[in-house]
Design a protein around this nucleic acid. Sequence first.
DNA 1: CCTGAAACTTGCCCAGGGTGCAAAGTTGCA
DNA 2: TGCAACTTTGCACCCTGGGCAAGTTTCAGG
Lengths: 229, 229
Amino acid sequence: MTTSIEPTAPASASPSRRELNKAATRQAITEAALSLLRSRGPGSFTVEDIADAAGISRRTFFNYFGSTDAALASVTHGFLDNAIQQFRLRPADEPILQSAQAALMALADPMTVAPLAELFSLTQQSSLMSHSELEAWDHCREQITTVARERAAGTPGAADELYLRAFAGSVISCGKAAMEVWFARRGADLSPASLAELRQLLIDAMALLGSGFATVQPPSSSSSDSRSS
Amino acid sequence: MTTSIEPTAPASASPSRRELNKAATRQAITEAALSLLRSRGPGSFTVEDIADAAGISRRTFFNYFGSTDAALASVTHGFLDNAIQQFRLRPADEPILQSAQAALMALADPMTVAPLAELFSLTQQSSLMSHSELEAWDHCREQITTVARERAAGTPGAADELYLRAFAGSVISCGKAAMEVWFARRGADLSPASLAELRQLLIDAMALLGSGFATVQPPSSSSSDSRSS
DNA sequence: CCTGAAACTTGCCCAGGGTGCAAAGTTGCA
DNA sequence: TGCAACTTTGCACCCTGGGCAAGTTTCAGG
């Protein structure tokens, strides 16, 4: 019943009944999936379970998502789409690394990270992310590449394809690294102090990238104060 | 990693019949899979097809690999294991970025890249890598992290976890980027000139990483690179 | 209000992925 | 030679994923 703006919604001025129903169903599915993940843990429930919980048929589930993973990954997708949006908003003449950092900053906000943090905490047991999860991150990487390419088109000393791809991949990797470290330290802690630490980790990660991982250590000692829990 | 009795670790001096058979079967499976990939293209053959081609039962296939993807990804796994081995061989006091570059250099060799290049060319149609493929790269990333961590333990200004993870992820991303660009330019061309280009791309990618992606800045306004803090 | 078209849901069916189990076949060792 | 350990294989079973066609809902006119 909670109406919210979801991806795949065509135009914001399309309150047609059909669109509304679809969005609601989509929402119901991901919430059912999340709920099952919470109660039973990863890999221990089927598409049918989700469909039952969402009040739809198994077949309809597949009209919305290709797998349980995909349903769960919609959380990540939303998060990363948000990141890309932030990235796109940055002024085109800003150094791109700074744009990336700024975009990441906007994500270290309780409402935004909460779903992802929970998903992280519920699935972290399995060493590797699900296929759909990885797909989401890779999609984000491609978006970054695209935005970077658009910027490069406006500058004379245009960066080549290698630059764009290597840059986008590295940004994603550093962002992931920061989130992994944050999560390893704080679990699903969403307190202001914890979020501040996440923010600092993201800044540090971008700084590392910007300094070319110089062996002379950056002032990382400032950020990593509380090492153990 | 025991030294006395090794039931699972096939040491190089283990010409036991069992080990030999297993290795041969494994080989037969990946070759059958590769052959089918060549003749029919990705996604158009089943586990049973592979098993038939390899002269084993469907069930036995699953004793060796969890999926068709996994069978194919063993190629990537071999390639990346090789890379890690090269990386481990580098002197511990060498700058780590240079070690990474050197390790990558050793891979730009016909015999080594050929299988991966073919796999690339045969599966590139589908935008995203298979799950097992990604798993292989991620495993490599973890290995790099581990090696880097071991090195850091011996140096005074020890790098923290963020540094290690961000570094490893970025190296992998840059390596992937270089290979993608190479492949986009040359296809599966393995000529000396093409391999030289791959080598150069790898060098360039590492250089980009080492310089913090500082690019030739736009002429007008400030040419400040993002090297703050 | 009625009616037909378009969109959506659902049940049915089927090919294929993945796994536990136990019987049958191999290999290793005394 | 014969037993113990290991491997292969067929079998049964559940789950994924998608095509198809018959219902059901939404929407636009008459």
